[in-house]
Design a binder for these strands. Structure first.
Lengths: 258, 258
DNA sequence: ACAAAAGTGTTCGATCTACACCCATGT
DNA sequence: ACATGGGTGTAGATCGAACACTTTTGT
């Protein structure tokens, strides 16, 4: 949805193609080089930031919808995506935070107030995980802007999105103990130092540098390759890769990792 | 909702008071004396069983709605209740399984086909846990009947409810390792044998009779009382109770229990 | 030779598992 | 005294946590 005309049509007729009263909000986490970020957007004439979201097409599964919504902002598909909780407090959206008139004026739209979009909405929370260096955040007609924020510098968000960030981050960290999620954040071949940094950053705690690889190799999740990477004036580190079979099996059954 | 007139009004005007396109389905698990059961209902003129469900009032939170829905079937409030997953496949409800004409005729209703109820619906899955001996299952105008089924004798269910049972049971068992859920299934004072049976039955596996109490007492979750129960011609077992403080704290933070 | 990062092994304590016999009570 | 279910302790294995020095490489 990129033109104002399309948006106008969406506002009037969207409920024929999308499920009304229902949205998906995505906490998209991005890792790169010891940093954990989250993608926030701001809407035209709304004062503040929120998680990117969208609606569910009547022909889509929830996972498909979440994938599409995330792809619209990141241009990436196939990143790690998980439903974690559904939010439905009747007062989760504070309508005084929405400035319809301003919004409509800014975009030269009509019918905002009576639109299906303005009814009470329950939101399905998804989180996604990707390498933020691969992503150029995309705004669209409704959003002023869309950008990565450092996880420790997230401003207070609109609606119940503070809660969503908190819950999604908690879910992500819990899952990290059971599922080898890190695969999507690393190149096909990576060093021990790199994967170690991923875990430390996502969990926001120190992991013993000597015990950590033991566990991963013991579990069979990663395999040492007979290659090294040249990194300048230092000892060349060995490269590792995920064992695809063990990895996908672990995604199903779960493994523990401290 | 107990009269046909109320139901008729609900079918026509319900969307003013309830969120349309959205329902809650509850997997209500009941434990008693080594048995695990689940509450199923069947709808008039629908061929088969399904999980009890309901709609969300526009003034309710999701948890409140789930509580109400569960209370309508069990007459109990305040049982252990958890949201575990939201289901939204566009084909999750096979409309050929719904026999509107038959249903309408049976209840002498009009307007079924055009009702808000007949649109595509996303369902929020909750599970609940209670002592089934405390519950007399309640049917209502829409349901023929509502009864406890042994968990191993659940017939194939309508819609995507087989998946719901599977997922909810999995969620329940996972949570049982982290949260001392059993409290709601036992009298205030209980014996080690009783709580042991609860865990073995819910997890469907053997737990060492000697190691099990060690863990619980070590964690401080339960406390030995200076009372015994008279159980006839055998040694009288000591009674235990949950340590409320530790218990509620564990509900927040989680504990592990193997 | 030195600076920078990689890589590696052992010990200790905690925890988990497995396992079998004696105890208390009522009839 | 006996039948029934209640209750307890220990040893071995496994797992996780803590910890510091040597190796490699390019300049």
């Amino acid at each position: 949805m990129n033109s104002v005309a399309e948006l106008q049509d969406f506002i009037i007729n969207g409920h024929k193609h999308y499920m009304p009263h229902m949205s998906i909000d995505a906490a998209i986490f991005g890792y790169h080089d010891h940093q954990l970020k989250i993608l926030l957007s701001s809407y035209k004439a709304l004062d503040g930031y929120c998680l990117p979201g969208g609606y569910i097409r009547r022909t889509e599964t929830l996972d498909e919808a979440a994938n599409r919504i995330v792809a619209e902002r990141t241009s990436l598909t196939d990143l790690y995506l998980q439903q974690y909780k559904t939010f439905g407090d009747p007062d989760r959206i504070k309508w005084n935070e929405m400035d319809f008139e301003n919004f409509s004026k800014k975009l030269e739209l009509k019918y905002i107030k009576d639109s299906w979009l303005m009814d009470q909405t329950i939101s399905i929370g998804y989180y996604a995980l990707t390498d933020f260096s691969l992503v150029t955040p995309q705004a669209d007609v409704m959003s002023d802007f869309c950008a990565w924020f450092n996880i420790n510098e997230v401003p207070p968000l609109l609606f119940d999105h503070d809660q969503m960030v908190k819950d999604s981050l908690h879910a992500l960290r819990m899952q990290l103990y059971y599922y080898p999620i890190a695969e999507k954040l690393l190149p096909a071949k990576f060093t021990l130092t790199e994967i170690h940094a991923v875990y430390e950053t996502l969990l926001d705690k120190k992991l013993d540098i000597r015990n950590f690889p033991k566990k991963l190799v013991f579990l069979g999740l990663i395999k040492k390759l007979n290659e090294k990477r040249n990194i300048g004036p230092h000892r060349a580190p060995f490269l590792y890769k995920f064992d695809k079979k063990k990895y996908t099996k672990a995604l199903e059954t779960g493994t523990t990792l401290t």
